[in-house]
């Protein structure tokens, strides 16, 4: 028990305590050892900073969109490719490849792929259609980033759904088929409800990953023209290291932590209420 307590104290409590102190202090790199307590000022400054809200909105949109698209595509692939993947296991390895690449490398790779002069995509688009869109300009960058994220992480959702899909006992499908249920009905009434928990988990994981996105966005567009692709993680990083506003950066992290806590607690509460209602019915 003692080692566990020591571990928790050293690795969790101390950083948490430092973060709390810093979030309530006027502190820079020069004054890290002598922070001046200023109360809730940092929180106030973060909350009235339009950049914080713009970054939060970017992260929220990015997280929701990528999670929904990845899970929809992953689910479709799991169902349509299930016979092939079950028969030829090696195809799974190929489908998983994008996940194996570090996110920052993906960002760098797409910087090359989308470059007007060096990239294959603009080259062929120009060759075939006489022009190529500016994938990374302020108007298109958001959607380009969504596509890049989806291409990398849809295999993760696919993997979860494939496992859930093949875990459904075949007897259930056979029984439904004997009752003349159509393929759509089998999917809608049997398979989908049985995969509900996996779908919720996949959506949750992908949303969290999308919401806290940093590496590939930072490598591909940075904060974007006028901060147009600044995620909350990039905002915190820039405030901390580039701006040297340590107190504000930590306060923003704390706000993010509180928002996550409220979201998770709300989700758990909703789940429990729904469970109770179902049991009562």
């Amino acid at each position: 028990m003692t080692p566990l307590v020591v571990f928790l104290l050293v690795f969790l409590s101390f950083p948490a305590l430092v973060n709390i102190v810093y979030s309530l202090s006027d502190v820079t790199f020069q004054t890290m050892r002598a922070p001046e307590i200023v109360g809730l000022r940092n929180f106030g400054e973060v909350l009235i900073d339009p950049e914080f809200w713009a970054a939060s909105w970017f992260s929220l949109r990015f997280g929701v969109l990528t999670a929904v698209i990845e899970c929809s595509l992953g689910l479709a692939l799991a169902i349509f490719l299930s016979p092939i993947v079950s028969r030829h296991g090696w195809t799974m390895a190929i489908l998983m490849l994008p996940m194996m690449v570090a996110a920052s490398m993906v960002g760098l790779m797409y910087r090359l792929v989308l470059h007007e002069f060096a990239g294959p995509l603009p080259h062929y688009l120009t060759l075939w259609f006489g022009t190529s869109p500016a994938f990374l300009d302020a108007n298109n960058a958001f959607w380009t980033l969504v596509v890049v994220e989806v291409l990398q992480w849809t295999p993760f959702a696919f993997l979860l759904f494939h496992v859930a899909y093949i875990s459904i006992p075949s007897e259930i499908r056979e029984a439904a088929a004997m009752d003349r249920a159509s393929a759509w009905k089998i999917f809608w009434r049997i398979e989908l409800p049985m995969m509900k928990a996996t779908i919720a988990i996949a959506l949750g994981i992908r949303f969290i990953d999308g919401f806290r996105v940093f590496d590939n966005v930072f490598a591909l567009t940075g904060a974007g023209a006028g901060g147009s692709t600044m995620s909350l993680s990039i905002y915190i990083y820039q405030s901390f290291f580039k701006g040297g506003q340590i107190g504000q950066a930590v306060a923003a992290s704390a706000l993010l932590f509180l928002a996550s806590l409220v979201l998770l607690y709300g989700g758990a509460l909703l789940h429990s209420r729904l469970g109770q209602r179902r049991a009562a019915a």
Binding site: R111, E116, F117, P133, D137
Partner: peptide
Amino acid sequence: TPKDSLSYEYPETNAAWTS
């Protein structure tokens, strides 16, 4: 200047030049 110039820095400029 290329349409994507708002995402250009040192290496992109070199790639454009060598093209």
